[in-house]
Amino acid sequence: MAVVTSGPTQLEIRGVSKSFGGVQAVSRVSVDVQKGQILSIIGPNGAGKTTLLNCISSVFHPETGTIVLEGQDLTRLSPARVAGRGIARTFQNIALFRGMTVVDNLMLGRHIHMKNGVLRSMLYWGPGRREEVEHRRVVEDIIDFLEIEAIRKRPVGSLPYGLQKRVELGRALALHPKVLLLDEPMGGTNHEEKEDMARFILDVNDEWGTTIILIEHDMGVVMDISQHVVVLDLGEKIAEGTPAEVKAHPQVIKAYLGTKATV
């Protein structure tokens, strides 16, 4: 399907580099992300995909380059402030709060939208309690959307892997982000879970217009759901374009798709 939408640039990644010791993980990468787009980043293991997401969400600060969201520079902000500006993410290896229930994990996704300070929290009465209930409603909507009603009171550490991935998506959605970064949301899940996840991603994009940056290995999924694809290899951007363009790109075929590519 891949409808090409060319809205205004929402997130501008300009010449971003990041190295670890001698390893140049990301090297002068620039990407323009359009509002409402589903953009996929592909590339072999160690290509620097996760590192690029880490730079966007300020887990690391890039050594060169800038990251600008809707005209505001995010490059030097703390991760918490980046979240406040409207960027949410999931992690390749799942980073949920394992000791807490699904509801509490999702409620934490509402943290930046809540105002309850110490005094209101101590009293848990009147406005303090109202705010809790109000945000619980938002969380319950997400729980319905992701079809995880049955596990809402379970500690997330006890859930199977595929469900944890879904809960982590829910926590990111609870932030109501402008841009959602998903690091291999289908990695390690079975076929059915992959299909569910693809459906959720499309629905989120469709219903809320959320911009999505997706790292994914499954080429079928990538080609199906993304409007724009960026290819990284050894930290460098070697190609980008529509799925069809990228698939036909000779360097991509050489570097990543190899002989397995079914063009």
Binding site: S57, V59, S78, P79, A80, A83, G84, A88, R89, F91, A95, L96, F97, R98, G99, M100, D104, L108, G109, H111, I112, R171, A172, L175
Partner: peptide, 16 residues
Amino acid sequence: MAIRDRDIAAEIIGVR
């Protein structure tokens, strides 16, 4: 509890 369970994830969702 978020800081206790996973501090980096806590920061990423906006917990200072």
